[in-house]
Nucleic acid binder design. Sequence first.
RNA 1: GGGCUCAUAGCUCAGAGGAUAGAGCAAUCGCCUUCUAAGCGAUCGGUCACAGGUUCGAAUCCUGUUGAGCCCGCCA
Length: 585
Amino acid sequence: MKSTIAYLHTALQSALVAAFGDDFATTNPMLVPTSNPNFGDYQANVAMSLAKPLGKAPRAIAEQLVQHLDVSELCEPPQIAGPGFINLTLKPAYLEAQLAVTQADARLGVAPVKEPQRVIVDFSSPNIAKEMHVGHLRSTIIGDSIARILEFQGHDVLRLNHVGDWGTQFGMLITYLKEVAPEALTTADAIDLGDLVAFYKKAKQRFDEDAAFRETARLEVVKLQAGDQDSRRAWELLCDQSRREFQVIYDLLDICLTERGESFYNPLLPGVVEDLEKAGLLVEDDGAKCVFLEGFTNKDGNPLPLIVQKSDGGYNYATTDLAALRYRIQQDHSDRIIYVTDAGQANHFAQFFQVAKRAGWLPDTVEVVHVPFGLVQGEDGKKLKTRSGETVRLRDLLDEAVDRARADLETRIQAEGRQETAEFINHVAQVVGISAVKYADLSQNRTSNYIFSFDKMLALNGNTAPYMLYAYVRVQGISRKGQIDFEKLGANAKILLQEDTEFTLAKHLLQLDEIVEEVSQDLFPNKLCQYLFELSQKFNQFYDRCPVLQAEEPLRTSRLALCDLTARTLKLGLSLLGIPTLERM
RNA sequence: GGGCUCAUAGCUCAGAGGAUAGAGCAAUCGCCUUCUAAGCGAUCGGUCACAGGUUCGAAUCCUGUUGAGCCCGCCA
């Protein structure tokens, strides 16, 4: 079924050849959805662009093209408008047939991809011995949504958590803990994570100020890297404790990840440097081993190096990233590697991608893509901080969203004189609060900075999670009120389109596959959000205008089917954003 | 000094070669004897930062200017 666009595209290409000859077999008919529903459903803009090559007036070209165009199965007779737009309007019978196919399909018309890829989505990536904070929010939410979309398409997705679990930070932390809380290095949970974070900060301070401490810390890293048992044990304890704390957040957010931290690649680091050497790319400069980059210069205009081995012999993140890239290509056999990190790392990615390319490790068949996102800012437009100026803990942020959702829900329950169990209230508050945070983030174009506002994301109106959850709840309300079991509506539930709002809603429902395909390519989940918001709006307009339960048959069944299809589309679409639905709220 | 990103309605943001630039919020005004008001309709609101250029057509692409944010040798 489906691929209305593909069908029309082919028809237009045939018409181009029939009208103007074989030279135009590859001419793009410039078929796009119309900018305005008054112009129909799709428009072809090719006539204007052919005016010069053909030496004719665009409208005449359009007319000639339309004479050779056969889309009568799908469309009303094509209309030529304005300077030479060809407007196509889908026939009601065609729409109804498409709806029937969609209804019967658990995937709602979104076909699995023909050639599944092995895709790695690298996201979240918190640091061991630190708490997850607001800086991890966007990567975690956006990365999860991208993974869900690609998984739904049928790709083989590996969700990797590239946690910061290696390097100098452990040297200084272990050194410091030996002084102040040695039990933390030998006993699980001897101190809690909050204290660990505080110790980390103090360790960092000591590291920056105290040369002797720095040297001890450096030796501690060497011990750890050399596999010293005590060091190793301490490191494992610290990682384990952090890991459990991360899992609390991931459970709250319903996010699944495979941990493969920086330490995983540690044994592979020397090989990276060796192979760069063999490739003739390695240059020693100031004692550090580097690859000098093309197109990146420093303040003096000289080429910038990518340092792969520090003058003290240690490796850094560029080396780890290169090792990880090689591993993901050679061992994981990935076709596409997606890195979801903040935009500030754009240079770093461009740089190490370049080195991987020049070293011959990155074949043209593998796509690597950095998916950058902007900062989370407070309502003052500055980087989000707590009132006391601290970084906002992710845990606190999510708790506050849920608390606010609960307070709002309780107020409303009271105002409406409803009786609800504590269980109901907690569940709804949880779903609304978390969903609001996720949706607010996903609904924005990720490339720009984003202003975090509890009030806006939890608003019941507008482009928010609660608005969409409510649209879904409304459909469930109909089924309860009318004692309708949508599953039993069955295949006979033919959708008939009569009212404008029904047409508008139906056409929108049929566009899900196009949106999913688009987002899977460009990795902008906000487009899916936009689609779902518009779907909710169109449903509410239909709901406002068309009685459902009180309609006469066969209209009643038709409208019930339309409601059900809307609910299923919302549920599926939201699930691709990592957002669940509620039956009542 | 270089690089990247951004600048669209009072506010928060969509739109990334096509027709008259959209939505939400805010403001103003309507609509609950109807499955529904956590909703729907309407009004108001724009020099798409500025200046050039490419194009049949530019908010969108290119160049420059201004302003903002981020990054730039041994942190990630």
